[in-house]
């Protein structure tokens, strides 16, 4: 390999490493969005959340009273929400649209109205 080509390759490698480092640096500086949701008899607060397509998000749940469940079947995501603990669900929404989520642990008279919507926009 001639010296000029070797220098070019070396420079390219350094650029690639630098690029990767830059990307990692950017990721480290822009943590995933966290949305805090409180589950209480008999609602999720907020009950509607809007996410951007392809952008990861972490949903953090706490319950104000009894054991609840979060289930978003279209995202194959669910979690138990235990009093005194924070439940986390990570989503990367891929499809634009509005999707239901529900409490899937029977929590009392009013449980069946405990639902919400995830809106995914471009």
């Amino acid at each position: 390999m001639n010296p000029k080509r070797r220098r070019l390759l070396a420079a390219g490698a350094v650029s690639a490493i630098a690029g990767a480092s830059f990307a990692a640096c950017v990721l480290a500086q822009t943590p995933e969005q966290v949305i805090h949701i409180t589950a209480r008899k008999f609602a999720f607060l907020p009950g509607e959340i809007t996410l951007k397509q392809g952008v990861p998000v972490v949903l953090e749940f706490v319950t104000a009273d009894v054991v609840m469940g979060f289930s978003a079947p279209d995202f194959k995501a669910r979690a138990d929400i235990i009093p005194g603990q924070v439940a986390r669900v990570r989503l990367v929404p891929q499809q634009i649209g509005s999707f239901d989520f529900v409490c899937d642990i029977f929590c009392g008279d009013g449980h069946e109205g405990m639902s919400g919507k995830i809106h995914v926009v471009a």
Binding site: S71, P73, D74, D100, F101, V102, D104, E112, S115
Partner: peptide
């Protein structure tokens, strides 16, 4: 069966 789990119409 998972009839419509979006409305909790299923058995885990």
């Amino acid at each position: 069966f998972d009839l419509y789990p979006q409305w909790d119409w299923a058995t885990r």
